[in-house]
């Protein structure tokens, strides 16, 4: 290397290959080191581009096999930042193994904390409930199609944008994130999520009471109709709040499911539900 060295950069093809690989990030999920193999697998096109000799490649692969775990789609942002660090290192900047690992570890926890409620707590429940309601209201196969397309367009778009943003901004991302944009986004998503959950409770829970009350003057009242006059969805609301209360007291979801099942059978047997 006596001539002036051309700086090593990742091509668009490398970035696309890395993006493609990110779809298998969690496949090797294992207990002590979590998504470590997945992260290393994603980095391999970059390792091949940036390090020519085998010992450097071995060192890079080993460094990305340390334990790692984040919300899978946020991994794209962390990958982007890591790519920029690896690129600097390959071009002779003093970036140590520890620094690269510290950036990964520093980002993974906080990003997962803001991303889990958005993706799993808001977007998936809302989109899938919307798709299910389309399917059950007679539009049939359109429901699954809406869910599949809606989910994956947003997911792939986010992953690509996050990887590009992370790669271009590098470690400066940490500053951008500290301004609290993501926290604000999470708060906003949680508001929409809570609102929609509130809306789904009366719309999608099916409970109807059977008993009919007969007064002394032989007027009959349907108990369910009476409750609906008061407030439709009152029973589903009570059940939902009861389940939240039990979850907060560390009752496992499976016990809640079994409890509801038992309650349904008992209620049907006792003539309370129809």
């Amino acid at each position: 290397m006596t001539t002036t060295k051309q700086p090593l950069t990742l091509t668009l093809g490398d970035q696309l290959r890395i993006f493609g690989r990110s779809g298998l990030e969690q496949a090797a999920w294992n207990y002590p080191r979590l998504q470590n193999l997945g992260f290393c697998y994603i980095m391999i096109p970059a390792i091949q581009r940036l390090y020519a000799d085998r010992t450097a490649q071995a060192a890079a692969a080993t460094r990305h096999l340390t334990s790692f775990n984040t919300m899978p789609y946020m991994q794209s942002l962390i990958t982007g930042v890591t790519l920029s660090l690896e690129e600097q290192r390959a071009n002779g900047h003093p970036v140590s193994d520890d620094e690269i690992n510290a950036v990964k570890v520093g980002m993974m926890g906080s990003l997962a904390g803001v991303a889990d409620p958005v993706w799993w707590g808001t977007w998936r429940p809302i989109l899938s409930a919307f798709a299910a309601s389309l399917a059950l209201s007679g539009l049939g196969i359109l429901g699954p199609i809406v869910f599949f397309v809606g989910w994956n367009v947003v997911r792939l778009g986010f992953r690509w944008w996050a990887q590009r943003w992370g790669y271009r901004r590098g470690v400066q991302i940490v500053e951008d994130l500290s301004r609290g944009i993501l926290q604000k986004l999470t708060l906003g998503a949680s508001i929409v999520g809570m609102f929609i959950m509130g809306a789904l409770v009366p719309r999608w829970t099916r409970i109807s009471l059977k008993p009919v009350l007969v007064t002394a003057h032989h007027a009959t009242y349907d108990l369910q109709a009476l409750l609906d006059q008061l407030l439709p969805g009152l029973l589903p609301l009570g059940l939902t709040l009861g389940c939240v209360w039990l979850l907060r007291r560390h009752v496992k979801p499976f016990w809640l499911l079994l409890g509801i099942l038992g309650l349904s059978i008992l209620g049907y047997w006792g003539g309370l539900f129809k």
Partner: peptide, 23 residues
């Protein structure tokens, strides 16, 4: 009959799980 009732009612557990992640 009980299963039919339960199929309509079990959704509340999912709602509660989602609410519990955000509330």
């Amino acid at each position: 009959g009980g299963f039919r009732v339960a199929a309509g009612m079990l959704v509340v557990v999912s709602f509660a799980l989602v609410i519990n992640t955000m509330a």
